[in-house]
Design a protein around this nucleic acid. Structure first.
Lengths: 301, 301
DNA sequence: TAAAAATACTCCATAGGTATTTTAT
DNA sequence: ATAAAATACCTATGGAGTATTTTTA
């Protein structure tokens, strides 16, 4: 039995008249008579009683209709929902991000995405870049906002922004009162540096800046998370290089100072599998690129 | 979208391989590829990701399957149930009967019917013959066990049994001690006679028997229901003609005596609309006729 | 006689088959 | 080179159309 037969039967049950039902179904009366005869042959008993004027449901017809109540609507809704998921207008996206993205790109991006695609739910996780890349590769994440580190052939990257580095110091540190800071003035400072296995990009860049200024930084501590790093700065354990955008989300005891003459940048990128990316994720990706702003991802990717 | 497409998609989702899925569907791989392509065109987006080895569901495909979960099973069950209703193996029958049938034909009939057709529910009402015939005519009742009185052209009757009349007397009445009773000995008795508008058959027959024996019965009371009539006999208000089968269901204060030489019978019939009768009702009818026993109703009626 | 459904027949759209090509590993 | 799916092309089933008949009130 096919849904077509059920549609015919529903209209017939409503009209109780082959001619009118056929008209409502945009077909001819003989075609409908034949279709119902086919269905009755398949079921093995009459579904309608034919009277000289009109028809009435048999018990078998009544039961068939009652038991399939809602099937046609379910199918319509399912098709429409599937269609919307295909367009990226419904469904869900799973994304991941590095800690530095939490207070920068992510909040406005998710706010705008929610406005444009209110029926799409976004699940997000915070991880390290290496883990993010692995999750994108395995399909656990649709998108990841991360540092471009180890290259994975399956995963494609787009630059979201190039983040200038700044210096985080305690408000009690004399440097906090300076207008800006030159790297060479930091030779005598203690540094808090991200762990190599936690944030290799910032780790390497921090060292590079110091070495480029002609000194080897005295490392007071390594940390895994930027939240811990900031807290250590607040506790006056040392100073630390952070991305400029951290200035906005200030810890009351931490001051972020501009670094004069520093040309190193930390890249924030978005990673995804171009062959696998669902439409909803693609929509989020395009929104991110549009806000970046860089190039948009084509619809055929 | 038709159920066929959904069947294809379900098997494809299970196999994640066009060739194997096609084999399970008893069709060729190209036919299945085309069928899915048709469906994807209708939905407007891919439902499966094709990989060099096998395939995987897209979000749209996953959603479509999830939302239509159970539809195929619902349809199968509905068809099968409708089929069974058509055969009379499921569904319901609504019957009616006169009071005299309650303690006679009905209990064994319903017991046997329940044994043979356990999935059919029987709804029954007790009414007067005239009301029963009207309900059968309007379709409110599928069958009625009644006295054949006013003929309704739409309603067909079959005789269930010819019931011999007997005499119900109080156990204190001298007649209660006789072996049997001749009608002519009843001239001096008070009679309880069913009301003309309640049970016209028994009313008329009761009078006929007395008149045939040469006397006009002294009528102590008219009653509507046989239960009330029996109670009146128990209270020694008078004697009454009842159907013989009442002897079995005895009131401790009432004795049912055989009537010598009485050739009048009260017919119990079953009425139905031959053009409208559902299969389940036909099965009940045939069981009743078989137990009667009289002729069986043909399957084509 | 008229209204409604069934029947007879014709046609064509399309689902599915066979053979082959394309694609990616 | 191989496995898998897509593509090209063909065929035939059967769903729907037109014309007509049957039925019954």
């Amino acid at each position: 039995m096919e849904l077509r037969d059920l549609r015919y039967l529903e209209v017939l049950a409503a009209e109780l008249h082959f001619g009118r039902a056929a008209a409502r179904l945009h077909m001819t009366q003989p075609a409908l008579s034949q279709a119902l005869a086919r269905l009755e042959k398949e079921i093995g008993c009459p579904l309608l009683q034919r009277h000289p004027r009109g028809a009435s449901l048999t018990n078998a017809g009544r039961v068939l209709l009652a038991e399939t109540q809602g099937v046609l609507k379910t199918m319509d809704i399912a098709c429409e929902l599937s269609r919307r998921v295909g367009r990226g207008d419904a469904g869900s996206v799973t994304i991941g991000f590095v800690d530095a993205a939490v207070f920068d790109i992510l909040p406005p991006l998710l706010r705008r995405f929610r406005q444009r695609f209110p029926a799409v739910s976004v699940t997000s996780r915070q991880l390290k870049s290496a883990e993010l890349a692995a999750c994108v590769e395995t399909g656990q994440l649709d998108l990841a906002f991360l540092r471009r580190e180890a290259a994975i052939p399956e995963v494609e990257y787009r630059t979201i922004r190039m983040e200038r580095l700044a210096l985080a110091v305690s408000r009690n540190n004399p440097l906090a009162r300076a207008r800006d800071v030159a790297v060479k003035d930091l030779a005598e400072q203690d540094f808090i540096i991200p762990a190599l296995d936690g944030a290799p990009s910032l780790h390497g860049l921090s060292l590079d800046i110091c070495l480029g200024a002609g000194f080897t930084p005295r490392i007071a501590a390594h940390t895994i998370s930027i939240q811990v790093l900031i807290e250590m700065v607040a506790q006056e354990i040392g100073v630390a290089f952070v991305v400029e955008s951290w200035g906005a989300k200030r810890n009351p005891n931490v001051v972020v100072k501009e670094l004069r003459g520093v040309e190193e940048f930390l890249e924030l990128a978005v990673g995804f599998r171009p062959e696998q990316i669902p439409m909803a994720a693609k929509n989020l990706l395009n929104l991110a690129l549009q806000m970046a702003p860089t190039e948009r991802l084509s619809d055929t990717a």
